[in-house]
Write a protein that binds this DNA or RNA. Structure first.
Lengths: 341, 341
DNA sequence: ACAGTTTCTGACATCGATGTCAAATCACAC
DNA sequence: GTGTGATTTGACATCGATGTCAGAAACTGT
């Protein structure tokens, strides 16, 4: 017999299939003695329930969807890894679905995933978690969802985030504490809402310290390394250059760092640079980047928990928990006391 | 009615469920007229077949598994992306399963995925595609598999790879052509078989050019950035330092690059550095890395094709095609003519 | 026009689990 | 020993599709 079914187990244990089912799913109302007998047979035969049959009858899929904009980015990889590990612990599986909001037909793609896979829940990564048209699709299907680091909490979904604003404030305070006054800020794309919060935090700290914000030193990039290169050049080529650059993500900070090198500006002696994310690449540069550790994997793991835990799942209309995870300021070699001049 | 089933479509089109099924699956033996009618109703109702029911009855899951060692790496991300896109085109789904060969219990995990998900096929990424104990598990389950860039072709599985040896030879020839003679090679871990091929290619070129290989300048790293830092230091700190360093992957090349910077060695003027992979990070450094573009996404896509195409699937014992995809030498700023001295 | 093919089509069983519900068993008090 | 209520257990229907197979319809060629 190539595949072992629940009936085989039942026959061998001398009970009904239903009882075996009860044991497997840890339901109550099974005499300990029987339970043990069934468990032994399950182990003996190395029986594994067929997920499809189970899904079909229970209308639970044991599948979570991770919807993500750019699955190639390091950010995505960290989120995915966190989700994957937690899924594994809870014997769920993860289906990764790229969503290209720029391309046509993404709605159909998403609809199709929802309808065909009968996902038990959706995890939506930034920046697409801020896209109302997307979340509406899930809401419409009554699919519980958890947003990872959304710009704002939605009513119809759970969320897991960090406090971007406070984190940015801490970083700015740290720079101010090092004596920096001319601090440039490289902002992320407007569509990435949580990144907007970072600018808020930056301004908070500056205002509170009574330091004027130079609006010409607040630039907007698209989170890419290339943007960091170009905006870095814009900031550093002219006169009155800043003594510190704070970029809203690591890739852009790295771009600025490389530009500084090209221009022969010493980092951190003459210029401090810091990022945000603690991407893998932030350690793959020299000097290594001072940055904010964003708990990406932890957020994803928590998202899985919210979707899987019965206490959350029961909430009609989906999981509605909102978790805030702690971040951490990581000081590395790219920042130092402001130059004396 | 919240969920539309095949019966709804059948009723509305005035045919049997089986006929609808035929239309959906593009089977022959349906009168064009009926086919069209059914298609119209499917579109009208926006019907999507339930994947579980389908899987249960057809014992095909429309699911492919991607088994990967370290899902966080950039390499993994590229492979995954390639597989994902192709899956989407062919309306398959991808389940990513991390396999930690170092940890205990990975066998059980994999077995469980195979048994519970009834995958239609497995894509196995390097370096674990070279692990006989792992592939044996799939073979045992009769699950078709395709290895991505394996060290050697197995009989029981398909494979998709690039010619690592030739690629390394080309790179070495290129360095030799620039006048370099003292060329160091940073090798990858022994377990990563295809990387061993890169050393072969390096030696081929050196021997063919009649240049002696300095065995002290062939070091072994573990593919990490950190290894590149340390081995780079070992190569560059002493006397007789090489004029070029060829690393078996980009992360290590990057490490070496940073070390050179720390030591104040000008790249590429005094030292040329090149990598292998064309990882995203190879462009996020300055100077940008000369490297070999490995067709990662294409390989993964081809793996999907092999597993999905009926012509391959029919082969008893699994897909056994072996594809070789072209690579490309990408010259960027990190290499230059050897210094005159 | 008719037997012999070939091409369509649908009735029904089936995949392997879980939900429902009623029957069987047990525990305890009187 | 019997009645009451709680706990265990299993028979059977069900989820939504596809596989099988037999019958109906449409073509052959003579």
């Amino acid at each position: 017999m190539s595949v072992i079914t629940i009936k085989d187990v039942a026959a061998r244990a001398g009970v009904s299939a239903k009882t075996v089912s009860r044991v497997i799913n840890g339901e109550a109302h099974v005499r300990p003695e029987l339970r043990e007998r069934v468990e032994r047979v399950v182990a003996e035969l190395d029986y594994r329930p067929n997920a499809f049959a189970r899904s079909l009858s229970s209308s639970r899929s044991y599948l979570l969807g991770l919807f993500i904009d750019d699955p190639v980015s390091g950010y995505a990889a960290d989120v995915q890894h966190g989700a994957l590990m937690r899924c594994r612990e809870r014997s769920y599986h993860l289906v990764v679905e790229p969503v290209d909001l720029a391309g046509a037909g993404w709605e159909g793609q998403v609809r199709s995933s929802i309808a065909a896979l009968r996902l038990d829940g959706a995890i939506i990564a930034p920046p697409i978690c801020d896209e109302a048209a997307l979340t509406a699709l899930f809401a419409e299907a009554g699919l519980p969802m958890v947003l990872v680091a959304p710009g704002s909490k939605a009513l119809s979904s759970g969320s897991v985030s960090m406090d971007d604003r406070s984190a940015a404030r801490e970083m700015t305070d740290y720079l101010l504490g090092l004596g920096h006054r001319r601090i440039a800020f490289i902002q992320g794309p407007e569509s990435h809402r949580s990144s907007v919060r970072r600018e808020d935090g930056f301004r908070d700290a500056m205002v509170q310290a009574g330091v004027a914000v130079d609006e010409n030193a607040i630039l907007r990039g698209d989170f890419t390394f290339r943007a960091g290169l170009e905006l870095g050049e814009r900031l550093l080529a002219g006169p009155d250059r800043p003594t510190a650059i704070f970029a809203a993500n690591d890739d852009m900070a790295l771009g600025a760092l490389i530009t500084a090198m090209k221009l022969g500006i010493a980092v951190p002696e003459t210029l401090s640079i810091c990022g945000f994310d603690d991407a893998a690449s932030s350690r793959a540069a020299w000097p290594q980047l001072t940055t904010i550790r964003q708990p990406k994997a932890e957020m994803a793991g928590a998202a899985v928990d919210i979707l899987v835990d019965p206490q959350f799942r029961k909430q009609a209309g989906g999981a509605q928990s909102h978790l805030l995870l702690p971040h951490e300021l990581i000081v590395r070699g790219s920042t130092a006391r402001a130059p004396a001049a």
